[in-house]
Design a protein around this nucleic acid. Structure first.
Length: 752
RNA sequence: GCGGACGUGGCGGAAUGGCAGACGCCGCGGUCUUAAAAACCGCUGAGGGGCAACCCUCGUGCGGGUUCGAGUCCCGCCGUCCGCACCA
């Protein structure tokens, strides 16, 4: 209606655990279950009057789609962006598969099923998303996305600037540590390794071996059980290894400990401990009687004494007892310190990221097979591109066992090596389903393209996506992966842009009437089909919009539906009773002008509210308009051309929200099909202004009277009228006004 | 613990620093009906006064502040929700 060419497709992200688990529960094949559901949902969308281009439908569990997942995988492999590696990975005992870091919430809970997850040492496939960390962080700044989503992405990527410093152990080993505070190097009085650190076994001295082994074992078990809470009460734990390191700036011998507060997964898995400057190190030092040395003194505050400190001081100050760096001001002069470390060969500037590579292999059935084979002679070999897709066999026993179900499907498993032609075994893990959703919008632009994942020409014409609506639950997972894939597509030369979604808005979730997540099994689900049958699609649409702010969501209630039916009936009445005219009558100019004012102010409100996603107030504006027309239809303006303008405008403004009603009314007004192809009304600013307004007169902020004034009445005139009003004189009670404020068209406030 | 959002009638909610409660639901009254439902019309924050048109007082989680004027801005609490949480 506003002249834009809009692509509004729909598709189904149809691989994954929900389909698989539901299929297991009901004893139906995931494919059957999935396609039955897709048909039902398509019907639901149609019922609701959603104007979707179904010719572009994409279903990710079809070979036509997932072959391109495999193609992307091979491209990643070629470019070193896909790799297989061993490491400690998250395992969900209920889903019977490994998970990506992003799928683990609250420390150790499976994002999907809510079970506690634990660490396992396994070899898995990864996508090297960390290669794009810098770009993912930087490009987020320019996006028109909700600030909290950008913050969540920034935190997840977690850029941290500092220095890497090498400590030499007495054993001769070199221990690299990352620190954001290289200025406090002179205050490093001990070192701490993560219990899983590879050097632990070799540096531990014989007399400490038993205690260290016990601690490592306990730390490992602990991660198997509930994740340790980080509350204040929990004492710091750790053990001494018997080894010593040399502080590279003081040449001092400092002990090397292990403790679970140092994480193997961040930095180098080892830290230099500066108890005077870091609260965790401080607590650890106090718990084990390790020395505390103050190296940063705050300015304009009492001098810190190591013995008297009750907590670490991490603020700004001046370096003391820090050799050649003594007297420097931090953090301002940190770059000089890092430069000195680099010059003297003790360390170098370093950026560390919290973001880890994306673990994409899964030990489940309903997903895209990873297209590689293993040959006894040639090792791992990628499946040749012209042999894609590697089909997911439909006859596999898909009950999860902790191993991919494909392991037992010999027809799938046994193949020939693309290198030597000898016998080979297929990779049996499938891909994380977030791979499917990482590029699907490109496919919408050329859904049947056979020469690649999408036609670069159409993708470049339509993309990036101008407006993306999705739930806040995608803040990290889907949106981060999608951004990563977009950058990879750009680097593959498929497209020119590097960001997939320019404008993002998060809709809230409609909850059950009890305020909980709607659930079919608990019977708290509200079926749109029933509501459409009883009340019609338009009433349901209006009600959904009217329920509350779109971004907020909230509990469902069906009571208000009746209000929308009443509104629609009034709209119907007013248009059908009066829309046919004739419009050759006369009415006082002021009344005609007032009617046109209402019409044009409604156009303005509805247009602006739509632009800003304020659908609830948009519906309110439409209701007010109809209510006003109901009042006016008994007056002479009903016979004027301005009335025709009003009812036609109403019909057009209703079109996006109540498409069926609007189409019917449009026809009844004698207009040709279709209302949805008409130009959206444009308001006339000359008509939205009111000429006579009610101005409130306040005394000390309290309303004491009202005046009818011209909208542009001069201050002197307005104030004179206000002071002349008997109620105002009474409120002033003879007092002399101290200050008078006049806001034209709104109010006069008299301070006494 | 840190960061963010939020807190308004019986309910959902509305209010560029300018009439708090738009609009809807519920409720009450009326019209129509033998009656009820539906529909339509009116009233509907709390307390008080007036025969009445109306008028007064209080009122946006709590306590302060800025301002002619605060739901809105600032400070401090309380509560709810969300994110992060040993990230060196």
């Amino acid at each position: 209606m506003r002249g834009y060419n809009v692509l509004f497709p729909m598709g189904f992200d149809a691989f994954g655990l929900p389909a698989e688990n539901a299929a297991i529960r009901h004893g139906i094949h995931p494919a059957t279950w999935t396609f039955d559901n897709i048909r039902a949902m398509e019907a639901q969308y149609r019922n609701m009057g959603a104007m979707i281009d179904w010719s572009r439908e994409v279903i990710t569990c079809t070979p036509e789609y997932y072959r391109w997942n495999q193609w992307f995988f091979l491209k990643m492999l070629e470019r070193g962006l896909a790799y297989r590696a061993a490491g400690a990975v998250w395992w969900c005992p209920s889903c019977q598969t490994v998970l990506a870091n992003e799928q683990v919430i609250e420390g150790n809970v499976c994002e999907r099923c809510g079970s506690a997850v634990s660490r396992r040492d396994l070899e898995q496939w990864y996508f090297r998303i960390t290669q794009y960390a810098e770009e993912l962080l930087r490009d987020a700044e320019g996006l028109d996305w909700p600030e909290r989503v950008k913050t969540m992405q920034r935190n997840w990527i977690g850029r941290s600037e500092g220095a890497q410093v090498a400590f030499t152990l007495e054993t001769g080993d070199v221990l690299e540590v990352f620190t954001t505070r290289p200025d406090t190097l002179w205050g490093a009085t001990f070192m701490v390794l993560a219990p899983e650190h590879p050097l632990v076994a070799s540096i531990t001295t014989p007399e400490h071996r038993e205690a260290v082994a016990r601690y490592v074992e306990q730390a490992r078990r602990q991660s198997e059980v509930e994740r340790q809470s980080t509350d204040e009460e929990r004492p710091r734990t750790g053990v001494f290894t018997g080894a010593y390191a040399i502080n590279p700036v003081t040449d001092e011998r400092i002990p090397v400990w292990i403790a679970d507060y140092v994480l193997m997964g961040y930095g180098t898995g080892a830290i230099m401990a500066v108890p005077s400057g870091d609260q965790r190190d401080f607590e650890f030092a106090r718990a084990f009687g390790l020395p505390i040395r103050v190296v940063v003194q705050p300015e304009g505050a009492p001098t810190l004494e190591s013995g008297a400190m009750t907590e670490a001081y991490a603020g700004p100050g001046v370096l003391v007892d820090s050799g050649p760096m003594t007297g420097l001001r931090v953090p301002e002069q940190l770059p000089e310190i890092i430069a000195w470390l680099a010059e003297s060969g003790r360390g170098e500037a370093k950026v560390t990221w919290r973001l880890r590579d994306w673990l994409i292999s899964r030990q489940r059935y309903w997903g895209t097979p990873i297209p590689v084979v293993y040959c006894a002679r040639c090792g791992m070999q990628p499946a040749p591109e012209d042999q894609l897709p590697v089909l997911l066999p439909l006859d596999a026993a898909f009950t999860p066992t902790g191993q991919s179900p494909l392991v037992t499907n010999t027809a799938f498993l046994e193949t020939t090596c693309p290198g030597c032609g000898g016998p080979a075994r297929r990779e049996t893990d499938t891909m994380d389903t977030f791979v499917d959703s990482s590029w699907y919008w490109f496919r919408y632009t050329s859904p049947h393209y056979a020469a690649g994942p999408f036609d670069p020409a159409t993708a470049d014409a339509w993309c990036p996506v101008d407006l993306y609506c999705g739930g806040i639950e995608h803040a990290i997972l889907h949106l981060l992966y999608a951004r990563f894939f977009t950058k990879v597509c750009r680097d593959l030369g498929l497209i020119d842009h590097g960001e997939p979604f320019l404008r993002l808005r998060n809709q809230g979730m409609i909850l059950s009437e009890e305020g909980t997540k709607m659930s079919k099994s608990r019977g708290t689900q509200v079926a749109p089909d029933d509501l459409v049958r009883e009340h019609g699609a338009d009433a349901l649409r209006l009600h959904l919009m009217y329920l509350g702010p779109w971004e907020q969501g909230g509990p469902w209630n069906s009571r208000g539906l009746q209000g929308m039916e009443r509104f629609m009936r009034r709209a119907w009445t007013v248009v059908t009773e009066t829309g046919a005219g004739p419009f050759d009558g006369a009415a006082p100019d002021a009344e005609v002008r007032a009617l046109r004012g209402v019409t044009h102010r409604t156009i303005q409100r509805v247009t602006e509210d739509l632009d800003e996603f304020q659908f609830n107030t948009m519906v309110a504006a439409l209701i007010e308009f109809v209510n006003e027309l109901m009042r006016l239809k008994e007056t002479p303006v009903v016979r004027t051309p301005a009335w025709r303008e009003a009812v036609e405008t109403l019909t057009l403004l209703l079109a996006p929200s109540a498409p069926y009603l609007a189409e019917e009314l449009w026809e009844r007004l004698g207009n040709p099909y279709s209302v949805h192809q008409q130009a959206w009304p444009v308001f006339d600013a000359a008509l939205t202004a009111r000429d006579l307004v009610e101005v409130v007169v306040q005394v000390n902020g309290k309303v004491r009277d009202r005046l009818r004034l011209a909208a542009d009445a001069a201050e002197a005139e307005a104030v004179a009228m206000a002071l002349a009003a008997p109620r105002i004189a009474e409120a002033l009670n003879g007092a002399e006004p101290r200050k008078i404020v006049y806001v034209p068209g709104r109010l006069i406030n008299i301070g006494r």
